[in-house]
Design a protein around this nucleic acid. Structure first.
Lengths: 193, 193, 193, 193
DNA sequence: TATGAATGAGCATTCATTCAT
DNA sequence: AATGAATGAATGCTCATTCAT
């Protein structure tokens, strides 16, 4: 009889611990020992589930990307208007703030890691596709461009708010993003078919 | 017999070497020895000019911030129209790309360093002030908000283009930023006084 | 319901896998997991058959020693002359080369392990006895000494040929060993009783 | 003014400490920390003088090889007869025993390291040349072969005596080696020109 | 009997920092 | 002012061993 372990569940626990730690102390201080501690395992156990530290970090980025992707496509509960929908992803609460901190922490590494860049690329492509799909624009190429514009706007506000939370309280984030997105959504080409 | 040394010049050389190295190999691999080598000094010499490694990194961020600030306020030579002006700062060439890479690399650390965050804060405040000053808006609070919106738009495009240069060639950067800024600059409130 | 397992057969399989791996990658890289893999079992299973890793290595040395002993006493098929007989044990083919590599690999450890030294001692004593028995010398003490001389000669050629196979091709091994052993076997005292 | 350090002297000290430790505890337990301790430095200091641990071990083998080479070519003080000369290199005292232990310890690794094998090759070539040069044989190819025979004999006795010192006291080493070498040196072809 | 998950000590290595010169 | 040797703590990683199943 073998010990029953949910491999994926274990990997998720470790990657989750890595995310929490990166948000806590920064990616530079997110070393394997405290990650293991936070996950309730030992460093040796991590070796069972990940090839090396980079694999742990990749899994963490993947996980945080999925969280942000979910937020960006599902929006939050009460949102009705379309422009406001993308507002739900902004770092306006502890949960999304943590995700943004980690997402940004990896940005600085993406230039030097093929693996990381691939993850970013896939997420950006997926989000662009999802955002474009929701636009009432028939020209697909044009739709992708508008989607890219929307994503850039969200990223810009999110970046500022993550780096300088004091200068960018939630209301300001929403107001500035709305100012950027309103013209795009009120333009004729995006009006309902 | 005292050796004549230009202290500030030495500090600039070391900070410049740090910037180049960070852009080259990433902030995580930018260690003191290669920085010293690139600057043409020894590690021991760095200790004369900087308290510790963090001080070197601070100076590097300060320097790269100044470069980006200059680009954002002066624009490039041939730019005439206002929306296009902010386009000149985007990572569309090797020089600005290097600056963005370094700027973003530090973003991930700003959350955990008071000193770094202060540098970011000062630059953002200065840029917001400079951008607001160029707007034809009499309400100063409103002007600062519009300026913040513009900065967020530039940051968003710059972030995307730095992380995924393949998906964001120069023309796309300009087109998306223009799409975001045009409505702002063509609105009544910003029309010339 | 008891699973029928041949204990000794299992031990032999594991020790054999250890020998093959040591010959392949060296004793320093012969770790338990790949040994287990090669033997078709798991690391945990090894614990059932061996007290610890040292016990596995001991079994491997024992096994390789037995192989070399067999070669040294039986000689190979076609050998008729006495001097040539000891030639059959030399590392002149893949099989004996593997045995020598492993035998030598353990030599470096014998100084620090009582168990290993005991194994070496037993084999050397047995071989000395066997070789002495084949000599036509009536003085038993003298016979043992001559046997030791013969063994040293074989060991010397085998050592050189194992460490530097390029400089010691099979013919050279045979020629040099013959040069050393001929005078011994042609001396009067070893002539047939 | 820079700190004055004799680079080579430091390297020798560290390599010497490695030799002593390998002889003491075996190559498998000769780790960097105790080597550093024995050399009176810290592990970090070793990094100044050697690229990595392998480089330290290489230097150690080189050093021990040089010691054995010196013994084999110079012989010891009182030796007059030629056959006895090669006797001086045998592991008959603490100093030479240590050298043999280390030399043998590396034998097991030479099959898996190009660098180590090169060191062995160079030493064996040099010794063969030196031994051949002392023979009164005009045919150079024949001289090298006889030299190889002599070296194999010495190696064989040294190997046995190092692995099983109890069975191979100094007198036995000398007697067995003499038995192997006497016929070679008394043969006509090697008699004084 | 057998599994393979988990442990944790030990390893080589890196690197900011210190300091005698 | 400047050197670069030296420190030593910290890191990622390996691996023999243990043990619940």
């Amino acid at each position: 009889m073998v010990k029953i372990v949910d491999h994926d569940e274990r990997r998720r626990a470790i990657a989750g611990a890595a995310i929490a730690l990166i948000a806590d102390v920064g990616i530079e201080h997110a070393t394997l020992r405290p990650i293991a501690e936070k996950a309730g395992v030992t460093t040796g156990a991590i070796a069972h589930y990940f090839k090396d530290k980079d694999a742990v970090l990749e899994a963490a980025l993947q996980m945080v990307g999925a969280r942000l992707f979910a937020l960006s496509t599902n929006g939050a509960e009460g949102s009705k208007g379309r422009p406001l929908k993308y507002v739900d992803i902004l770092p306006t609460n502890d949960v999304s703030r943590m995700a943004w901190k980690v997402w940004l922490a990896f940005c600085g590494h993406a230039s030097y890691s093929v693996r990381l860049r691939e993850i970013y690329k896939r997420f950006y492509t997926d989000i662009e596709t999802a955002v474009a799909a929701e636009l009432k624009i028939t020209d697909r190429a044009r739709a992708r461009d508008v989607a890219a514009t929307i994503i850039a706007a969200v990223d810009g506000v999110g970046l500022c708010a993550t780096v300088l939370p004091d200068m960018w309280p939630p209301e300001r984030q929403v107001a500035r993003l709305t100012e950027l997105l309103k013209p795009i959504f009120s333009s004729a080409e995006t009006s309902p078919k």
